[in-house]
């Protein structure tokens, strides 16, 4: 490329392919090898990496989602999980007459420690991947160009519509739209905000399609991949760590399912 690319943090220097391998390894290991200590370690390490990558500001939204999920899962499953035997299972505590069971706590842990660590770890990995670089990787992997374009453009359009939504919401507020107050007031605010956003996006489609056609989007020739990225010294470590985690997780789960080995790693409390 002509424009020099600057990578301000370590994770951004690693090329997309190895990072996706690591992401795959993390997903498979968290789903297939249900180990509390491993899951908690991944969660803590991910948050440390997020801070080092200077992404904690953006991470706050994910953190809120993780907290809400945590509270919902533990509060509800502790009382109503499907594995609770209300007669025999030990009760951890009772509050306002509602019993909180140890088996419900274990059920909540089983599911939370699958999704909870995934959120910060994948957040920091995917945030460090440039979507344009990802499109290059996908094209090189043989995915059809139109499919790659559609996938990558989704991220672009989300940013654009978000900007439109902010402008429209402010404009409607200045015209007297109430966005705070009772539930009914807030529900009434949906249509005046979202209809203009949707309509303005759809109306531009025809012109955009024609513009893309004149720029050769439907040309039958082989398309050039313009962007290139150079390998980084940490790439092989990420790639092989991801592959090793993936192979180990799948193999471990297969052997446990076939009763070849006992589940010596699984211990969701």
């Amino acid at each position: 490329m002509i424009q020099e690319r600057i990578f301000p943090t370590f994770l951004k220097k690693v090329t997309p392919g190895p990072k996706l391998w690591l992401a795959l390894g993390l997903i498979l290991s968290l789903i297939l090898v249900k180990n509390t200590y491993y899951a908690i370690s991944v969660m803590i390490l991910s948050i440390v990496v997020i801070v080092l990558e200077k992404q904690f500001g953006l991470f706050k939204v994910i953190l809120v989602a993780m907290t809400v999920l945590f509270i919902s899962m533990y509060a509800l499953h502790g009382c109503i999980a499907p594995n609770i035997d209300k007669v025999n299972d030990p009760v951890m505590f009772t509050i306002f007459g509602i019993r909180y069971y140890a088996s419900g706590f274990a059920w909540a842990t089983k599911f939370y420690l699958r999704v909870g660590p995934m959120m910060p770890s994948l957040f920091v990995i995917f945030l460090s991947i440039d979507t344009a670089d990802l499109s290059v990787l996908m094209c090189k992997a043989g995915i059809p160009y139109n499919a790659v374009f559609t996938f990558i453009d989704s991220f672009q359009v989300i940013t654009l519509l978000n900007k439109d939504m902010d402008q429209i919401r402010d404009a409607q507020r200045s015209r007297g739209l109430q966005t705070e107050g009772s539930l009914l007031t807030r529900m009434k605010a949906i249509v005046p905000i979202i209809v203009p956003v949707v309509a303005s996006a759809i109306v531009k489609v025809q012109d955009q399609a024609i513009a893309m056609d004149t720029k050769g989007f439907n040309a039958k020739c082989k398309k050039t991949v313009y962007r290139e990225f150079s390998p980084y010294k940490a790439d092989p470590y990420f790639k092989w760590a991801g592959i090793a985690l993936s192979v180990f997780s799948v193999g471990y789960k297969a052997l446990v399912s076939l009763n070849v080995i006992p589940a010596f790693l699984t211990n969701m409390l």
Binding site: M1, I2, Q3, D130, T131, A132, Q156, K215, G216, F217, A219, C221, K222, K223, T224, V225, Y226, R227
Partner: peptide, 15 residues
Amino acid sequence: PTVEDEMAFAMCNFG
């Protein structure tokens, strides 16, 4: 995503 990519888009499509 960038001006450079945008300028390259049509040329990439035409190979």
